[in-house]
């Protein structure tokens, strides 16, 4: 029997909650503390926790390195793309009011902030995971006595 069975059971319950909390922080960032950066780090830490407890190979199955590589650049593209979109709509770079110029409650700003924060989430989560994968994959699996 695995000596870490309690750790594994508890982690299995906690990891989905941590990931869910990341998305709460992301989409609630307009109203309370938080935002893309914090949400990205929390989401990355849920996967890192999975990797620490179930091993690197399992984590790479759950979140393949190719996704990480694509997500890193996709986030920056989403952020920059929002700016380019406002250009194409006739405004300045990142001038979100252009998304809904007639709105009386600044809906354009809300859409712009939403999309930009999504880009930050993507880049931060994937960059943190990329750094973790890069370091973690170099370490051979340790037995408990090695610690």
């Amino acid at each position: 029997m695995n000596p870490h069975v309690i750790l594994r059971v508890v982690a299995k319950m906690l990891i989905p909650l941590i990931a869910l909390f990341a998305f709460y922080v992301q989409f609630h960032g307009d109203f309370g503390p938080g935002g893309g950066f914090q949400a990205g780090v929390i989401f990355a830490s849920s996967i890192i926790l999975y990797a620490l407890i179930f091993g690197m190979a399992a984590a790479k199955k759950a979140m393949p390195p190719s996704w990480v590589r694509i997500g890193m650049s996709l986030g920056v593209l989403l952020y920059g793309g929002t700016g380019v979109a406002t250009w194409l709509l006739g405004g300045n770079f990142l001038d979100y009011t252009r998304f809904a110029p007639e709105s009386t409650h600044a809906a354009g700003q809300h859409w712009g902030i939403f999309s930009v924060e999504l880009g930050v989430l993507c880049t931060v989560a994937c960059a943190m995971l990329a750094i973790f994968y890069a370091f973690g994959s170099r370490v051979q699996d340790l037995s408990d006595e090695d610690w």
């Binding site: 390195p65 590589r69 890193m72 650049s73 920056v76 880049t123 960059a127 943190m128 994968y133 994959s137």
Partner: peptide, 19 residues
Amino acid sequence: TVVIFMAGLGVLLLLGLNG
């Protein structure tokens, strides 16, 4: 955001995504 992207990219260039 670009700085964080570059940090990740730098580590990937040095160590590789799978080490």
